[in-house]
C-alpha cells in the first residue's frame, strides 16, 4: 500500500492542498456531511470524478447556476449514483484502452443513507458485484433528512422520525437498522470500511487505501444531522466521536477479507446513553417507563460490537 506509507499526514501539510468543496453551498449550518466531503477530497491526490445520488448533499451543493464542487461532478437520479459512477468508470477504461486518455483517474460515488441503504441499494450492489474500480461513500445521517426526516433502513431503533413518530402506540422506529458495511463486506469487495469525521486521519487514510485497491470499495461515514437528530448546530464532531466511543459506529475495515478494528475503546467504552441523550429524537427513551427500550438499544450495540470483535479475531491479521 504505497499510498499509506508516505510521510505521515498532518493538518499542516494538508492545509497546502486546495479545498475542492467551496463555501457558499446551502447545506445547513453545522451539518456533518460537508466536513466529510472536504476530508474525502483532501485525501485524494489524483484527478477525481464524482457521481452523486439525490439527497441533501446533492441539492444543496448544486443549485443552478452555482456549484460548490471544484472537481467534475454528476447527478442523475436518486437510485443510481453507483450505476452512474460505473458508467463513467467504464468509459474511462475504454478511453484508456483506446489510448485516448493517459491520466490516472479515480471515481467516487456519494450517497446519503436513503440513497444508499434503500433507493440506491440495487445499483450499489450491482456495481460492487461487477467489480468497477470505484469507491462508493455513504454519508450516513440515519434518515431522509433532505425531505423532512423520514425513516430509512439506516435509522436506528427507537428514533423519532416523521414517518414513525413517537406516540402512544409506537416508540419511534420499531426495528433495528441494517448493517450496510457488513453487507458490502459480504459482497467480497476489495475494501469496505467505516469511518467518522472526528478522526480525520483514520478517515483520510481509509479513502487513500480504498482508492489504491484494485477493485470496488465501499465506505460508510458517520455524518451527524442537527436538524434530524434534534441537536445543537455545534456538536456534529462531538456526536460522531461519541458514536465511535460508544461502539454504535465502530471504526473498522475489511481489506480483501481481512477484518481489522481500527479503534477499540476497551475499558473507555461509553454507555450508549451518552450518545442518545443529547439527541432530541431519542428523548422518549429517557422517559419513565421506557427503561426497557434503552436497555434493548444498549444490548443491540453490545451484541454488534461483540460479533465484530469475533469477526476481527477470526478473520483478522494473524
Amino acid at each position: 500500500m504505497s499510498a499509506t506509507q508516505e510521510k505521515p499526514m498532518t493538518l499542516k501539510s494538508l492545509s497546502h492542498k486546495k479545498d475542492n468543496l467551496s463555501g457558499g453551498h446551502r447545506m445547513c449550518s453545522g451539518c456533518g456531511a460537508p466536513t466529510v466531503v472536504r476530508q474525502v477530497l483532501l485525501a485524494i491526490d489524483e484527478p477525481v470524478v464524482i457521481a452523486n445520488a439525490t439527497g441533501c448533499l446533492e441539492v444543496s451543493t448544486c443549485l443552478f447556476p452555482y456549484t460548490a464542487w471544484r472537481v467534475p461532478w454528476m447527478h442523475s437520479a436518486f437510485e443510481n449514483a453507483a450505476a452512474t459512477a460505473s458508467g463513467i468508470e467504464t468509459m474511462y477504461r475504454s478511453l484508456r484502452k483506446q489510448g485516448k486518455l493517459k491520466k490516472e483517474m479515480k471515481f467516487i460515488a456519494f450517497g446519503g443513507d436513503g440513497g444508499t441503504y434503500d433507493i440506491g441499494f440495487q445499483a450499489l450492489s450491482g456495481a460492487m458485484e461487477r467489480g468497477h474500480q470505484l469507491l462508493y461513500i455513504c454519508y450516513d445521517n440515519g434518515a431522509y433528512m433532505n425531505t423532512g426526516i423520514q425513516r430509512s433502513s439506516a435509522t436506528p431503533m427507537g428514533a423519532d422520525t416523521t414517518t414513525q413518530p413517537v406516540g402512544s402506540k409506537i416508540p419511534g422506529k420499531t426495528v433495528r437498522r441494517k448493517d450496510l458495511t457488513r453487507i458490502m463486506a459480504a459482497h467480497n469487495v476489495a475494501y469496505a470500511a467505516q469511518a467518522s469525521p472526528h478522526n480525520w486521519r483514520d478517515l483520510m487514510t481509509k479513502v487513500k487505501k480504498a482508492l489504491a485497491t484494485n477493485g470496488p470499495a465501499y465506505m460508510g461515514i458517520m455524518a451527524p444531522c442537527n436538524r434530524g437528530w434534534r441537536t445543537q448546530t455545534n456538536d456534529s464532531i462531538l456526536l460522531s466521536r461519541l458514536a465511535v466511543d460508544t461502539c454504535y459506529w465502530p471504526l473498522y475495515e475489511v481489506e480483501g477479507g481481512k477484518w481489522t478494528i481500527n479503534y477499540d475503546p476497551k475499558d473507555k467504552k461509553k454507555p450508549i446513553a451518552e450518545w442518545l441523550k443529547p439527541q432530541g429524537r431519542f428523548k422518549h427513551l429517557f422517559a419513565p417507563g421506557n427503561e426497557a427500550l434503552l436497555e434493548r438499544f444498549q444490548k443491540l450495540v453490545d451484541d454488534d460490537w461483540e460479533s465484530l470483535q469475533k469477526l476481527a479475531a477470526a478473520f483478522g491479521a494473524k
Binding site: 467551496s22 463555501g23 457558499g24 453551498h25 452555482y66 456549484t67 471544484r70
Partner: peptide
C-alpha cells in the same frame, strides 16, 4: 443544466445565515 464554472458557489454568500 451543466454548471461550467467550478466552485462558483463561492460567489454566493451564506454569512447572513
Amino acid at each position: 443544466g451543466t454548471v461550467l464554472k467550478a466552485g462558483n458557489a463561492n460567489e454566493y454568500k451564506t454569512g447572513s445565515w
